[in-house]
């Protein structure tokens, strides 16, 4: 297990993933804003939330990178294509399970059952995050693919 590689490259890969998601937002492809969604679990101010959310996302990314590093160690090699496959699996789980399940635990996210008493203001992501734009699944899968490839390449080089 490459602990030093995990510690450094996990941060780099998560930063890359976040940067791609932000680029997709700026390019008008998706309204999925992971930093905002994660950060609004601790503050309602969008700007503060983005900063907090970025840190939370780095921590989560680091945890996932641990899984990647462990997988590479088990397989005995780290390559870009294994990283890419793991990235696709990671993206599929995030879209189909993790993001939709946020509705149940996020204090400021409304659900599709929200009524007039709801004070939650973040709209629910819906299946595959489609409420944030029809291209959201593609953007998220692409960003996670890049994350996996980056980890595969970097840990291989290390």
């Amino acid at each position: 297990m490459d602990w030093a590689g995990w510690a450094l490259f996990g941060l780099l890969a998560t930063t890359l993933l976040t940067a791609l998601m932000i680029a997709a937002q700026l390019g008008g492809l998706s309204r999925l804003d992971l930093s905002l969604i994660l950060g609004t679990t601790v503050t309602p101010d969008p700007d503060r939330a983005r900063a907090a959310g970025f840190l939370i996302h780095l921590c989560i990314g680091q945890l996932f990178a641990l899984g990647y590093a462990a997988s590479f160690a088990l397989l005995g090699r780290a390559t870009w294509w294994i990283g890419g496959l793991l990235g696709l699996l990671h993206g599929a789980i995030a879209l189909s399970a993790l993001i939709p399940l946020l509705v149940g635990v996020h204090p400021r996210m409304a659900s599709n059952r929200a009524g007039p008493g709801s004070t939650a203001v973040l709209e629910p992501p819906g299946l595959l995050g489609l409420n944030y734009g029809v291209q959201t699944p593609l953007v998220a899968m692409g960003a996670h693919l890049a994350y996996g490839i980056a980890l595969g390449l970097l840990l291989n080089a290390h």
């Binding site: 309204r31 804003d33 969008p46 203001v121 973040l122 709209e123 409420n131």
Partner: peptide
């Protein structure tokens, strides 16, 4: 206002005339 902010994100700084309930 929260809806306006969220729904118009993909079109800014243009303001769309109308949107679906989820801002599409």
């Amino acid at each position: 206002m929260a809806w306006l902010l969220s729904a118009t994100r993909l079109d800014r700084p243009r303001l769309p005339v109308l949107l679906t309930l989820h801002g599409k």
